[in-house]
Write a protein that binds this DNA or RNA. Structure first.
Lengths: 210, 210
DNA sequence: CGGCAACTTGATTCTCTTCAAGGTTCGTGG
DNA sequence: CCACGAACCTTGAAGAGAATCAAGTTGCCG
């Protein structure tokens, strides 16, 4: 850990700025200290796929390739630790324990992505939004105890591009969840989960199709 | 490599049999020597998502979790090397070089899965099938030089569950590709790619929308 | 207070799914 | 060797769900 600190630089990124861009020379890796980022890839004709959202404690930016394959944009003001790529990989070599931990992290991401593949491949709009919200809550609870009320740092369009939907469809799904008594929507970005079990059932595609 | 051989057992699995099942105790990892396998997860209500297809040279079955999160079924007769999980992880610790290689492999899988997320999230049926075919060809070419003619070990239903479509839609996409002069379909499982550039354009969503 | 970006909601369109029928291939047993 | 059945594939027609198009509304920031 001290060795980790030795090669890292603290860095602040303001809301709306990009930490790195798809195609940039992948010279650094980052660890998020604080705030939220959106990871996305944009296709030739402008279609955007959001690959994920990251926040406190997550690693981003390390890749095998020369260039970043995705872009990372700050959804809020963000603080990150920046590592020189070479120094970071050096560190992995020098501390096998650390390398193992890091590998574990990567493997965990693989599992998450499998869940996401299932979501995109086999769930309908409502189930996708439910899955997203559930995953987001669970992630928040890892970081800090939150009392069922949560703040979403991303827009409906971000969620849509994450779930393979349009922003209108996402908005409709939120409204539906509200009307069904599963959510309470204070403001678009501040919601409260009223019926977590209902949300879980929806997310797993377990709900009796109403 | 000799150390690798020391802990491995050769194993044959017949077409249609499963190498391991979702939920099974994850006691082994495998390296495919020969043949094709389908990796899939099945949801509560029977919805199936095929996570990928693997063949010669691919590793499968290693996971952080106690149990396998997916099932692996043989699409053809298959030969694999089986490793005891503990011994395998032991090996990773003893040979850092090997661990690094393995990690590289995992990272490569992450990149592949990002492509797949984009495909499921943002491409239409025709583009998905084109992407699948292209990826399959490229994979085949890694293994062995093949002259544009290729044999698909999986059924239309397998492809459909991989791409988040129905088997009918996949079949229609194949027909469309045939009519557009991009493919030649000898038999359902034996096809020839006539217009690779056209296929590439379609796969990347680059095609002038006809 | 004004302007803009984001969100919601409605109407219409389009793609893919669902349902249905017929065709092909292949293996098995008579 | 041929007949038969099962599994798989193709194609068509109808229907559902999400996309698109189009207003309005809300809330935030200068």
């Amino acid at each position: 850990m001290p060795a980790l600190n030795a090669i890292s630089t603290s860095l602040k990124v303001s809301k709306g700025e990009t930490l790195f861009l798809e195609g940039d020379d992948a010279r650094h890796a980052f660890n998020v200290v604080n705030g939220h980022l959106r990871l996305a890839r944009v296709g030739i004709d402008g279609r955007r796929q959001v690959m994920g959202f990251v926040s406190t404690g997550d690693f981003v930016g390390h890749t095998r390739k020369e260039a970043y394959t995705i872009s990372a944009e700050a959804l809020t003001d963000v603080t990150v630790c920046r590592f020189d790529r070479g120094a970071f990989e050096d560190l992995l070599v020098r501390f096998p324990m650390f390398e193992r931990e890091f590998h574990k992290l990567t493997a965990g991401m693989l599992d998450d992505m499998q869940d996401q593949l299932f979501t995109l491949g086999r769930k309908n709009a409502l189930e996708r939004v439910a899955s997203f919200l559930l995953a987001f809550v669970e992630r928040q609870e890892e970081i800090q105890c939150s009392g069922h009320e949560l703040w979403l740092p991303m827009t409906r369009a971000d969620i849509a591009d994450f779930l393979g939907l349009t922003l209108e469809t996402v908005s409709r799904a939120f409204s539906r969840l509200k009307n069904d008594g599963i959510l309470e929507i204070e403001q678009a970005h501040t919601i409260r989960i009223l019926d977590r079990e209902g949300l879980t059932d929806l997310a797993s595609g377990d709900a009796e199709t109403v």
